[in-house]
């Protein structure tokens, strides 16, 4: 893990409130892996005070890319940064996804959850070229069609992409986890399946329940407020079968079966 002064190369709106950011991060490329994150200091003037974590969306040559949604003060300030400015970035941090050698990889993204799954898909696609029988199914869920991100990129990477929206404005009407339950009967006959998910907690909780029921190995990426991001403050713990674990250090990616979900 490194702390670098990174030159901002690109920071533009993708659609709606979503932005894509590209920053020079030569030293971080080798350790970057799908599911790991970077912790960005948004402002030298301490507004906001703490760093903001973003999962690594992609790496290209010496650059890392993240996508983010402007939701609060931190991301609002970040969205106004111009190419040529410098950002203080720490990373890569945390534990990412372990790539399993399976026939069917099912990726489930809720909203911004697409961000690390593009990086994961690129890694999975490298294996796919070695064995054409391998398939990647991507389920993307969002509130409306305006919040669907990266669908074309997944298709370009050779994935079978299915979409759900809460309001039915695009694809299946309902939750992405309902879409998962709908498609599972068609692929469950293939024993070698794996689920990779990233999205809001209620979605991940349901993914965990379904994957446990069907005995499919599932890895989920959790989000939590981070203070230090490097494992020191113990502020971001999640309850697991082995006690509290740090989302920033042992996570953000966990095996779904190890999480003990609060009733919510």
């Amino acid at each position: 893990m490194l702390q670098i002064r990174s030159k901002l190369l690109y920071n533009q709106r993708v659609q709606g409130g979503f932005f894509r950011l590209v920053a020079r991060a030569a030293g971080m490329i080798r350790e970057a892996a799908p599911g790991k994150f970077v912790d960005i200091r948004i402002d030298d003037g301490y507004g906001p005070l703490l760093r903001r974590p973003f999962s690594i969306h992609r790496v290209r040559e010496q650059n890392i890319e993240v996508i983010y949604e402007v939701l609060g003060k931190g991301t609002e300030v970040l969205s106004r940064k111009k190419p040529g400015e410098y950002l203080d970035i720490i990373g890569p941090l945390g534990n990412g996804y372990s790539i399993l050698d399976v026939r069917y990889s099912i990726l489930i993204a809720g909203g911004m959850g697409v961000a690390p799954l593009i990086f994961l898909t690129e890694k999975l696609a490298e294996r796919k070229t070695q064995n054409a029988k391998r398939k990647i199914i991507v389920l993307i869920g969002a509130k409306t069609k305006n919040e669907i991100l990266c669908a074309k990129e997944f298709t370009r990477l050779g994935c079978d992409v299915k979409i759900s929206t809460d309001d039915g404005s695009r694809g299946f009407k309902g939750k992405v986890t309902d879409l998962l339950k709908k498609i599972l009967p068609f692929v469950i006959c293939h024993k070698r399946l794996a689920i990779y998910a990233c999205g809001p907690r209620p979605m991940l909780k349901e993914v965990s329940r379904v994957s446990t029921t069907y005995k499919i190995p599932a890895q989920i990426s959790l989000e939590e407020h981070l203070a230090c991001g490097i494992g020191a403050c113990l502020g971001c713990v999640v309850n697991t079968k082995e006690g509290f674990k740090r989302v920033c250090k042992e996570g953000p990616v966990f095996n779904a079966e190890e999480i003990i979900w609060p009733d919510c």
């Binding site: 005070l49 703490l50 407020h225 203070a227 403050c233 502020g235 971001c236 713990v237 999640v238 309850n239």
Partner: peptide, 16 residues
């Protein structure tokens, strides 16, 4: 230790 959530940011500060 205590149950999560354990931290949050506040104006020019944080709670833990």
């Amino acid at each position: 230790g205590n149950a999560p959530g354990r931290t949050c940011e506040t104006p020019q500060g944080m709670l833990n």
